[in-house]
Computed example of a mutant assay.
Amino acid sequence: MFDTDAVHAGEPDPPIERAVTLPIFQTATYTNEPQDGAVRYVRYNNSPNHEALHEKLAALTHTEDALVTASGMAAISSALLTLLDAGDHLVVPRSLYGGTLTLLGDLLPQFDIEHSFLPDDGPATWAGVVRPETEVLYAESITNPLLSIPDLEAMVAFAEAHDLVAVIDNTFASPVNLRPAKLGFDVVVHSATKYLGGHSDLAGGVVAGPSDLLDGARKTVKLLGGSLDPHACFLLHRSLKTLGVRVRKQNRTAHTIAEALVQHDAVDQVHYPGLSSHPDHDRACALFDECGAMVSFELSPASTPDDFFEALSLPLRAPSLGGVETLITQPRYTSHKDVPSALREKLGITERFVRLSVGLEGPDDLVEDLTTALDHSLDA
């Protein structure tokens, strides 16, 4: 059903001018009749390209409605600014994407919106950070870059008990591996730049959820101008059709790589939920179809990070993730560069912490290349 929806959901029926592929409506504005009361305009995210995407994404995320934005951060910021007013408060886990942490710490306080971190010692202690003005619980389905799996079911129950809107960033899992709306999350956000786009050639975001909440998000996006260009819509629409095929192969290769890394002397620890040694392995198996295509690992003190990176041939040293090519990075210098150093250290994001986004190359080729580079890091 997922792959069928990826190909067919949201497609115009009948096809426009009999075109099998939805054409690009590369126009900023449309004619209208005053009596219609409807204005079609590119900033309003309501071109034929946008509308087809919204329907397809709603089907894939198992939500009532969906909205595309110009980037993942546009999706996150628009969702939170829609749900929160001046004086409001939200609660979040400590381990989040660096851009989200910066949004919470630097920008939202300018709107008199505060946040608190959920204690790390479990749901029984979470109530201690809830205030009368708390409105939102925000989380990630697989945390960036530590690849932990929060107790998502407990989060949904907690949000319901405290009358909070539960928002989740599902970028790392993708809808192939997890549909958080089925767990009870109210709003799901994605960076479409990653797996949904899948080819490292577009920037986009998604907000998905009930139509009444999405109406507010549409207004926010319209006012802030975070709309997706029609050509980027076309690229994303194209990419979604192969999402399941791509991600399932990447999942399998990531598992193979994680098992190989565990065996290497240059690696101290491997973070991959698919490994039985991962502390959240049982939870991942219970909630996820598969455990994702991201692998993080910590180089041992005996290895030299610079020599490891210089010896690599296949993985490209670059930020971002989810593309057809394997990307590798040190989050200390990329996704979490602007996170306060004390919090980075607390999270364990040091220069020896490496994040790998597994692509579509042959598993054996990737394992051989990574193993050779790790060997070189020990010999240097």
Score class of each variant (00 low, 15 high):
residue 12 P to L: 00
residue 12 P to E: 08
residue 14 P to F: 01
residue 18 R to Q: 13
residue 23 P to E: 09
residue 24 I to D: 11
residue 25 F to D: 11
residue 34 P to R: 12
residue 40 R to H: 14
residue 42 V to R: 07
residue 45 N to S: 15
residue 47 S to I: 00
residue 48 P to G: 07
residue 50 H to L: 08
residue 51 E to H: 09
residue 51 E to V: 01
residue 55 E to L: 09
residue 59 A to V: 01
residue 62 H to L: 00
residue 71 S to G: 08
residue 72 G to F: 01
residue 73 M to T: 04
residue 78 S to W: 02
residue 79 A to E: 09
residue 79 A to K: 00
residue 83 L to Q: 13
residue 85 D to K: 11
residue 87 G to M: 11
residue 89 H to S: 09
residue 89 H to E: 13
residue 91 V to R: 03
residue 93 P to E: 14
residue 95 S to L: 10
residue 97 Y to Q: 09
residue 99 G to M: 06
residue 101 L to G: 06
residue 103 L to P: 04
residue 104 L to T: 04
residue 112 D to W: 00
residue 113 I to C: 05
residue 120 D to P: 10
residue 121 D to W: 06
residue 123 P to M: 08
residue 128 G to V: 00
residue 129 V to K: 06
residue 129 V to C: 02
residue 135 E to C: 12
residue 136 V to L: 07
residue 142 I to W: 06
residue 144 N to V: 10
residue 145 P to L: 05
residue 151 D to P: 05
residue 151 D to C: 05
residue 152 L to C: 09
residue 172 F to A: 08
residue 173 A to R: 12
residue 173 A to V: 07
residue 174 S to P: 06
residue 180 P to N: 06
residue 183 L to V: 12
residue 187 V to D: 10
residue 192 A to W: 05
residue 193 T to W: 10
residue 193 T to M: 13
residue 199 H to T: 07
residue 200 S to N: 12
residue 207 V to W: 05
residue 211 S to H: 10
residue 223 L to W: 11
residue 224 L to A: 00
residue 225 G to E: 08
residue 228 L to R: 03
residue 230 P to N: 09
residue 235 L to H: 10
residue 235 L to K: 12
residue 236 L to Q: 08
residue 239 S to T: 04
residue 239 S to K: 01
residue 240 L to R: 08
residue 240 L to W: 02
residue 243 L to S: 02
residue 248 R to T: 15
residue 252 R to D: 15
residue 259 E to V: 14
residue 260 A to M: 12
residue 267 V to H: 01
residue 268 D to C: 00
residue 271 H to E: 12
residue 272 Y to E: 08
residue 273 P to L: 01
residue 274 G to T: 01
residue 279 P to W: 11
residue 286 A to R: 15
residue 286 A to C: 10
residue 290 E to Q: 15
residue 291 C to Q: 13
residue 297 F to R: 03
residue 306 D to S: 15
residue 307 D to S: 12
residue 308 F to G: 13
residue 309 F to A: 09
residue 313 S to N: 12
residue 314 L to E: 03
residue 321 L to A: 14
residue 322 G to S: 03
residue 324 V to T: 11
residue 327 L to C: 03
residue 332 R to T: 06
residue 335 S to V: 06
residue 335 S to N: 04
residue 337 K to N: 04
residue 337 K to W: 06
residue 339 V to I: 06
residue 341 S to L: 09
residue 342 A to P: 02
residue 346 K to T: 14
residue 354 V to P: 10
residue 355 R to A: 14
residue 357 S to N: 04
residue 368 E to F: 00
residue 370 L to V: 14
residue 375 D to W: 02
residue 377 S to E: 03
